[in-house]
Design a protein around this nucleic acid. Sequence first.
DNA 1: AAGAATCCCAGACGCACGCG
DNA 2: CGCGTGCGTCTGGGATTCTT
Length: 280
Amino acid sequence: MSRKMQFHNINNQFNHTDLKVHQCGFEDCNPKHSWGPGVRDYFLIHYVFAGQGTFKKENKEYKIKDKQAFLICPNVVSSYQADTDNPWTYAWVGFNGLKAETYLDLASFNQENPVLPRVEDDSIIEIFNKLNDIEKLNQNKEIKLLGLLYLLISRLIETNGSHLSYHNNLNNQKEGYIKRAISFIENNYHRKITVSELANYVGIDRSYLWSIFKKKVSTSPQQFIIHFKINKARELMKKSNISIREVAQSVGYKDPLAFSKIFKKKEGISPAEFKKHFQK
DNA sequence: AAGAATCCCAGACGCACGCG
DNA sequence: CGCGTGCGTCTGGGATTCTT
């Protein structure tokens, strides 16, 4: 148990692909409070306001003091623990997206260099404070969080950036594939899209598309398509009073029952319940 | 040798059909 | 109409080949 903790999970209803905030939070840890060893499927930055602790990445161990930040990369085994005598207080933000790796590289903050030296920059501290004030908002939470994340990363690049990074023509090519795929989905979500068709359009093998999607977007092409369609359906149901059958048709499900089934599976409630909720 | 790209197949999923 | 079943198609991810 911690002395004080706030945690915000972000329900991303928009399809940001370059950067996407997963969660953020703040914690005033008790002595020896720990996490891991384990893996995350997104990037996670911790910024230590006060106190100290230990961060372990694979077999390396780092002593972290106040005003330092450390980075957990997706699918890398990590753990961290608050100090016994002087436990840390930190804020964190978890995110991913197509550009996440590239931007972090620009800030020289990556898997090879997962710990930042003391950050004296007040504006970074301010950004973390704002991230944690987001709970008070009731509108535009996601957009504001995204804005703060961009600000944070741009400050990290300014204060810590290397001049020799940006080593990734190959990454750019993969991003190109994914951008093409996503724009195809955006233009064709109103009908049935198979992953094979998508891969064909992009001009690469279906399985290869799957593996770069998984790596860069943290989800499979099929799940992305479903998620995209469900989001469109949500928008439709919020904005207009059309029938479930019409909503299903509009996002490419000719069988409204199949649509209801997948909607319920993803959202936890049926489209009918969702509609009712927004039409009070 | 390493990373990119393709191949392949078990299991998941979707759809049509039939039965009560 | 709703549920169960069976069959064909699609997907995920490891195995394999290709390319640099």
